[in-house]
Design a protein around this nucleic acid. Structure first.
Length: 857
RNA sequence: GCCGGGAUGGCGAAAUCGGUAGACGCGAGGGACUUAAAAUCCCUUGGGGGCAACCCCAUCCGGGUUCGAUUCCCGGUCCCGGCACCA
């Protein structure tokens, strides 16, 4: 249990009279009654869509991390509202998926019963946090009115040829008994349960996200997103520029001849091409082709059967069998080089020499062409492999200093360099920056970059190569052999084949299945519900059956932001007028753990819907900011450590306003912070002092000029900090102002306090609303506008200037703002403490008005 | 290994354009109020030296640029996140 170090200030004895429990209840009720947080979606003149990543409604309830994210977004949204925008801040629940299903299995309650319960609890918690949410637009991905359109999106992709079925090696989690997307496999283990992932072959539905790789990459150059998130997406898409190079396989006759005669293959290729087998490889280092001493194919490569010689057939078959038995994980984790010679040779198109063809599991079928040219001299993996099997290692790239022409003065050295320009490499030489080509015929001396271009151009003339771009990104596997998700809206008919469910028949309702446990068959639990999956073909009317897989949860969340403004619309996924007014999303705040999954899929789905003519924009989130993560007393929070912060307890003891403000105060929002129980007292004290200041404020006389100056400086600071999400410094500035406001126990004037209440309101909305009312506000503070700062009022008359002698601080002077250098220098020299260091002739004077004076002697 | 981000008092952190390092908050110490405690308010609080005015040292480590570097450049250490037999 979480120990909260300080007890609740008892409202009866609390000197300030501030009782958050009373204030927060009062305003939450009022806001609901008055519809303060409801957005008139049709009317907003300056719409602002403040989106937060919707939560997965776990049974544990709202996590402090959720609240950290939501509060940051809420402050941003409230600030925009105070700036005159019509703000829409919706929320919903990402309630489908394995998470929910596994938990339901664990506690033995049907998810259809469990999920609404969890949602109710979440809703209660969210309301207690005082978010400016328009609850009329709440949505849940499990609602048939929602997933009807998730299914519709699947069909849109299908119509456009972007959804296809393929039998594929998939990641199979033996614990969750389902396939996983590559993205859900972390270091060979299931992202959710940590079990070791195995390899299975199943018919799967895929989305052709790879068709969009280039667009997804290119748009990253202009969308206003956290740089860290964009970097993660770039890595994930993994564009690599290289070339596809064709290696011709030698036939047996040629092989015999090659053993005795030096072949000039370049000349004869054209005529032989027709009958010979080609192996196409992908490489990012075409400049090293003269050093390609062997080829390697993935064991699964379709050409292996055709290539293998009779001598090697048995060994090759055994190796292929061993590889296919191996799960995808061990194959990638075990880096010891293994492989088998096929007995076949290919011609290196650059050297014209025959090189052996091997198969090895370090070459993956799913990347590039499933075949590589091995350049052991300049690639670590190829080097290791060549060492193990005694294959030749040739140097074709050398550091600049090794070039013979650089050593003509040193006869002995030149001699050794010339005789053997590629001494045995102790390790692969992979530097591409300070290097040039050697042993590469007419290309010697070129830099790596020049060599790449020149060699591809040269090979291309003979049809041996072409520049090509490859992506690491794979197509998105959306099939899940599970129960708790939207059924994929497809029907299989023996006569018509794959038939999409007609739009008028959507949604394909998820039947209520009592026994929803997945089993080892790799078939969804829905396959057990015969009454459900047996249907008539919508096309020919004959017996047919439904697809029994459900779709990936990431499809549910890939479009929810499009639905929010139209959550009440029945006959279409989104209303055109709403789209026009509210989308793309003005500001999206969320965690970077979704940098490549949710955020990439959302962009993809948006692009597809754009191409299909449903959306005018192709990027869903104009602005995205990743928030940081909270740790607890220097350690990561985890259930096992029992150090998780439960928001409810803190809200109860300190109030939601204090909790919110504290969360925002503990560090830079985009970096996160360290939650320390003791420190929350600081922000609570600040709110107590705010309360007293407002309640006791004097109305007679006038505000103090000095205090007003600080006030306007504070308004400026907060106004600048909030849009930058620099919440911690904004709060610090308000605390600083509070110190001035209440210095020496003075009683502040209303005019000094009222604007502060407005500044505080995005952070601590309840207390602000209460004090606003007590100060005479008639309508909600959130409709009161944002205080303007007056630069002339904020200006200081006197400034302190640091005085340095030779760059060392020797004192400070107080001068009028706008004082010139001569005058400032005179003032500084009048100070004996400074003067005594400024001896001798003055060489130079640096003057930064208002800041610093540096005298160099 | 590659790509990001980071390292500042006892602690969380500021310093936004190269210009007084440590704002703000926590904790700690002292004081006021109180019979007492809590709460509240006030003062002190990077390290070292000095009776003192003051002086020296200090932003992960080592160099450099500059009148001046937490900030820019080069080299290194450690921590966090992402990717990883991706050719």
């Amino acid at each position: 249990m979480t120990e909260v170090t300080q007890s609740t200030p008892d409202s009866a004895t609390e000197p300030s009279g501030y009782d958050p429990a009373v204030v927060e209840k009062k305003w939450q009720t009022r806001w609901e009654e008055r519809g303060t947080n409801d957005t008139d979606l049709r009317d907003g003149a300056r719409p602002f869509y403040a989106l937060m990543m919707f939560p997965y409604p776990s049974a544990e309830g709202l996590h402090v991390g959720n609240l950290f994210a939501f509060t940051g977004n809420d402050i941003y949204g409230r600030f925009q509202r105070l700036q005159g925008h019509t703000v829409f801040e919706p929320i919903g629940f990402d309630a489908f998926g394995i998470h929910s299903e596994n938990y339901a299995l664990k506690v033995g309650i049907h998810p259809a019963e469990l999920i609404p319960r969890n949602i109710a609890n979440f809703r209660r918690q969210l309301k207690s946090a005082g978010l400016m949410v328009d609850w009329r637009h709440e949505l849940s991905t499990t609602d048939p009115e929602y997933y009807k359109w998730t299914q519709w999106i699947f069909l849109e992709l299908y119509k456009r040829g972007l959804a296809y079925r393929r039998r594929a090696a998939v990641n199979w989690c033996p614990n969750d008994k389902t396939v996983l997307a590559n993205e859900q496999v972390i270091a060979g283990a299931c992202e959710r349960c940590g079990a070791k992932v195995e390899q299975r072959f199943l018919e799967q539905w895929f989305f052709r996200i790879t068709d969009y790789a280039e667009r997804l990459l290119a748009d990253l150059d202009w969308i206003d997103w956290s740089e860290t998130t964009k970097t993660a997406q770039r890595n994930w898409i993994g564009r690599s520029d290289g070339a596809e190079i064709v290696f011709r396989v030698m036939d047996l006759l040629e092989m015999g001849a090659a053993a005795t005669v030096g072949l000039n293959v370049m000349a004869t290729t054209a005529e032989l091409n027709a009958m010979a087998t080609d192996i196409r490889v992908f490489t990012t280092r075409p400049d090293t082709i003269f050093g390609a001493t062997y080829l390697v194919l993935a064991p699964e490569h379709p050409l292996v059967d055709a290539l293998v010689t009779d001598d090697q057939r048995e060994e090759v078959a055994a190796y292929r069998a061993a590889t296919s038995k191996q799960d995808l994980v061990t194959r990638k984790v075990n880096r010891e080089k293994t492989g088998v010679f096929t007995g076949a040779y290919a011609i290196n198109p650059a050297t014209g020499k025959p090189i052996p063809i091997w198969i090895a599991d370090y070459v993956l079928m799913e990347y590039g062409t499933g075949a590589i040219m091995a350049v052991p001299g300049h690639d670590e993996r190829d080097f290791e492999f060549a060492k193990v099997f005694g294959l030749p290692i040739v140097r074709v790239v050398a550091p600049r200093g090794v070039h013979p022409s650089r050593h003509t003065a040193d006869a002995a050295h030149v001699d050794s360099q010339n005789r053997d320009e590629h001494p045995p490499l102790e390790e692969p030489y992979v530097d591409t920056e300070h290097a040039h080509l050697v042993n590469s015929a007419q290309f010697n001396g070129l830099t790596v970059e020049e060599g790449k271009h020149a060699i591809v151009t040269w090979l291309a003339r003979h049809g041996h190569a072409k520049p090509i771009v490859n992506y690491r990104l794979h197509d998105w596997c959306v099939s899940r052999q599970r129960y708790w998700g939207p059924p994929i809206p497809v029907i299989y008919c023996d006569r018509c084949g794959v038939v999409p469910v007609p739009e008028k028949d959507l949604p394909v309702l998820l039947p209520n299945v009592e026994d929803f446990k997945p089993d080892d068959t790799g078939v969804s639990p829905l396959a057990r519900v015969e009454s459900w999956y047996r249907v008539k073909c919508p096309s020919c009317g004959h017996d047919a059956r439904r697809e029994t897989d459900v779709s990936d949860t990431f499809l549910d969340s890939a479009w929810y932001f499009l639905r929010y403004p139209s959550s009440d619309v029945e006959n279409k996924p989104f209303d055109e007028a709403m789209l026009k007014k509210w989308l793309p999303v003005s500001s999206y705040i969320g965690g970077n753990e979704h940098a490549v999954l949710h955020l990439l899929y959302s962009r993809f789905v948006t692009m597809v819907l754009h191409d299909a003519g449903h959306l005018e924009f192709e990027e869903p989130f104009t602005k995205f900011r990743a928030h940081g993560h909270i740790i607890r007393e220097g350690a990561k929070m985890s259930k096992t450590k029992g150090n998780v912060v439960i928001p409810d307890q803190y809200i109860e003891r300190w109030g939601a306003d204090s909790f919110r403000t504290y969360l925002m105060f503990l560090g830079p929002y985009e970096e996160g912070g360290d939650f320390r129980d003791q420190s929350i007292a600081g922000v609570r004290r600040f709110l107590d002092r705010l309360w007293v200041s407002a309640v006791d404020a004097r109305r007679d006389g006038a505000a103090d000029d000095g205090v007003l100056r600080k006030l306007h400086q504070t308004i400026k600071k907060v106004t600048e900090d909030v849009p930058r999400l620099s919440y911690n410094t904004a709060i610090a500035a308000m605390m600083e102002y509070m110190n001035v406001l209440r210095a020496k126990e003075r009683t502040p004037h209303v005019d000094e306090v009222r604007p502060l209440v407005q500044l505080v309101s995005p952070f601590a909305p309840h207390i602000a609303e209460e004090l606003w009312e007590r100060l005479g506000g008639r309508m909600s503070i959130f409709d009161s506008g944002w205080p303007a700062y007056d630069a002339s009022l904020a200006a200081e008359e006197l400034v302190t200037i640091a005085v340095q002698v030779n760059g060392k601080l020797r004192g400070t002077i107080r001068v009028a703002t706008g004082t010139g250098q001569e005058e400032a220098l005179a003032a500084a020299m009048a100070d004996p403490g400074i003067k005594k260091f400024a001896t001798g002739t003055t060489k130079k004077v640096i003057y930064v008005p208002g800041r610093l004076l540096n005298v160099v002697v």
